[in-house]
Amino acid sequence: DESNASGDSGEQKEAEGKTYNFKLAHIAPPDHIWNEAAKKFAEELETRSDGRMKMDLYPGGQLGGEPDMVQQLETGSLDFGFITTAFLTSRSDAFSAWFAPFLFDSYEAAFEAKGSDVSKEILATLDDQGLRALDIFFSGNRTMMFREKIETPEGMKGLTLRVTPSPALQDWYRYLGANPESISLPDVYQAAQTGVIDGMEMDLDAAVTSNFNEVTGYAAMTNHMVWPSVMIANGKNFDAMPEEDQKIIREAMAAASEYATMKRSSLEEEYVKTLTDRGMVLYDMDESLFKSYMEKFDEEYKAKDPLIKEFIETFRK
């Protein structure tokens, strides 16, 4: 079959008549908000291109984990992928900027920040790797979940916490005096159940779907970091497209990003209610308690990359 994505098959036709059969992959399960973003993106592409652009979706890491997907995006086996900034920091340090703690207090604020020049400059650091990082959407702000109620950052000293294996996230917990462990997601429930870990950094959707409320009874609603997903295209195929088609893609992505971010934001209350109904104790831990640790993070990370410095200085109030 001619499912190959690049659209070379349309060479005989007029440029505007070109048809595409794209492939998009991401690691989130089919019922996750990420997949809604993917479906929305596919819909928008189809309507905006009058049916010339079709897209096959590969959710749930069907084509592999993030290192695999990024490699496939480089070579063109894959046309689009949603990749976490947590992984992209291993490709370009500048993406750590998004993990500066307490920089944005809502999904809306983060969504607005993605339009800034410095955000675009960070995306552009992937250009020379054959990747076109075109847009960002936000889901799953970070909260802290514990087996016992922890009320201050000082209470976290010495605790073993499961944290996504990305240096910026892990460093933040080291600054807080905790021991970050990178246990793989399927093992987290059991590790928390049995006490291998004392808690974890997690988002509310994952807590709802994986029943983490059963093993960690307390959630500090810190919302201390945002969780950006970067929408990436294969560089070679994207650059080869006529400008109108590139524009269609950018607009479809922007629409999908807004749709997913705002939808996730509106679900926040529902998730809080679900977890409370299940007996989880959700409580606030005030941002001001973290002030000295934030300063430490800013100081360390501003020194790592001028773009991180610029990003933090632009958005730290």
Binding site: N4, S6, G64, P67, D68, Q71, Q72, T75, G76, S77
Partner: peptide, 8 residues
């Protein structure tokens, strides 16, 4: 194109 993804 997919061949170059084989080792990864």
């Amino acid at each position: 194109t997919l061949m170059s993804s084989a080792p990864q």
